[in-house]
Nucleic acid binder design. Structure first.
Lengths: 161, 161
DNA sequence: ACGTATTACGTGAAGCTTCAACTATCTTCC
DNA sequence: GGAAGATAGTTGAAGCTTCACGTAATACGT
């Protein structure tokens, strides 16, 4: 592609930005695939499924409204609904309508579901550590998180706005 | 999930790592979706399709072997093969067998293909800037890239090894 | 030269995600 | 209290990706 360095308002990326951008895309595309592979091979779960179960296992009373779950799992509501259906079919989650508002549906973790996440968690965490935290400088962990959080917030704003 | 802080070898994440991990996953899951949406709405392209066209537009003689293209596009060879088929159907890319080794197939950018990427590039770059570089400190760009590159290399190693 | 392993790519089926409705239930505000 | 709009969730179809397998060509060891 022609990188015109013409009249001022040209929004092209600098070389440094270009390099950072490529690294970010590489991670954004390969990390989910790697996580899926590990969880699938070792525990028969996709990454979203694991993440949903993990969020429920940390929630009060083992339950969360689907909308809240979707936001925390970085998924669309539609996607989450399909995921919960699959988890329901495998007996790891059930749906319950809320009393105070009949529009909201809770996804509730079952005992079997809890057993599944807790079995998968140690391997998965070890994998995450090997993939992400082992190769980077410990001093880089906090800045990395802060920078990425800013990006995540911006993406969120664009999706909402 | 129970976070036992038990006997030494427990591989759980620290709170800081946990936060960074969540931010990384949030970006890794939302960024591709956001890029897809922008390119789809404004130019009828998926992110992979754009990326492939962009890589070809920068390559010598507008062509790359499918394997090289897959690696640079962070895609599996199978996925890339499907993508190239779709691009071929739209007249943006053609396939050519290599003379020196009949196993390799080049993906070659057509004039129409070049026109398509060049039309999409400015909008896309502006979007990337808005999403990633505007919200972060300019001084954070290089460290971010370095850290992510280390992670990308590690993921790559796991995929290969 | 010849069998074996490796590399490059293609393909169809299965599975997952997105998209575009659509239903049902509150909330607001005259 | 009733209409209009907002909110929560569901669903089926279409599209994309992964997976598993298959084919063809080349490199390697003896």
């Amino acid at each position: 592609m022609a990188q015109e360095d013409g009249a001022g308002t040209d929004p092209w990326l600098t070389d440094e930005e270009q390099r950072t951008w490529r690294a970010l895309v590489a991670v954004a595309l390969r990390l989910p695939a790697a996580l899926d592979r590990q969880l699938r091979e070792e525990h028969g779960l996709t990454h979203v499924e694991y993440w949903v179960l993990a969020l429920l296992s940390e929630a009060d009373d083992d339950r969360l409204p689907l909308t809240a779950l979707a936001a925390q799992a970085n998924a669309s509501l539609s996607r989450l609904s399909h995921v919960v259906t699959r988890l329901e079919e495998r007996g790891w989650v059930t749906r319950e309508r809320a009393q105070h508002d009949a529009r909201v549906t809770y996804a509730v973790l079952t005992a079997q579901g809890r057993h599944t996440v807790e079995a998968a968690a140690p391997d998965h965490v070890a994998f995450v550590r090997a993939l992400v935290f082992d190769p980077i400088d410990p001093d880089a962990v906090v800045p990395l998180g802060a920078t990425l959080a800013a990006v995540a917030r911006t993406i969120d704003g664009h999706a909402a706005g």
